[in-house]
Design a protein around this nucleic acid. Sequence first.
DNA 1: CGATTTTGACCTGCGC
DNA 2: GCGCAGGTCAAAATCG
Length: 338
Amino acid sequence: MAGENREMYEGGGGFQFHDDFSSFFTGQRNGGSGSGMLDMLKEDPATSFMGFNEFLVGTGDYGVLPRSLELSCCSPENFSGLGDGGKGMGEVEVETKCVGGVNSNGVISGGGLTPVTPNSSVSSSSTEAAGEEDSVRCKKNDHQQSEKGLEIGGGDDGTDKSKKVTKPRRKGEKRQREPRFAFMTKSEVDHLEDGYRWRKYGQKAVKNSPYPRSYYRCTTQKCSVKKRVERSYQDPTIVITTYEGQHTHQSPATLRSSSHILSSPNTIHPSFAHEFMMRQMQQPMAFHHANVNAAANVNTTMYLQSLTSPLQQLQQLPADYGLLQDILPNFMESSQLP
DNA sequence: CGATTTTGACCTGCGC
DNA sequence: GCGCAGGTCAAAATCG
């Protein structure tokens, strides 16, 4: 895998987070025109990035996106890439090769650029996924309990304390993944406030990147939303945030304030991000127009390939159709795309 | 003192 | 089967 990834980093056709992410935004991928997001950022960050907070202020309906997500997730044929369909992380890529969406690293991948694997599985709806996750959690708890039971029952004197005895997963049962979407934010702060409360549960060094990846979980009980935060190794000023799952509750910030959704100027709402993306898709040209007016401390760009218009891109590159279909199934349904 | 962060170990999936 | 990398767990440390 290491070699493969290295190959990816060296310009291979694969899709690895940093490499592909960066090339994705630098426009180098697929012989890109060089008008990628990162280039835009470097050349003219002020005009190339959307001021997320402006949208926050302007977007009052927080229910829109969750609903959208739900609708999206409940349509397996439209959401086959995002739900992971019981696939492991690596296999997500296989799925995205067919239909695009968010790859194993949470980045919207170019479905048309990667080989298609015919036997990619179709994901279940997010509702199912959530249920699965619950069951997984239950299993985890069970296994942890049994694990402790084993430890206790084993009568070890503690020398094996560091070694976990785990009950093996049933064969064929693969980890369910929630739908994911990611966006990049130009910010000096790693962990951006988004209105929710997060608890960090892990941090890992990322291969070929000097910046670690942090893992957060929503602290609200029964809310299994996770997010990963890392910096782009090419542009350290860019924070890549990947959300997984849907919040089963309102944002605490929303509850705190009804007039102003979020008080922090650096606040980004994940659902809003998705909604934003969808709106941009529906009004392609507004993307850059809005950027001109962007004047926020935190500039955020969705993982949309930087063409004049995402819609145009879709029309020009039918092979990539699935790429955004996964992310924006509703849009796809309502659009004139075949 | 509870909540959160840190961090090393472990688990899982995948490619070779 | 092995090694690698991503992801997660959980004990210890830290914080408020």
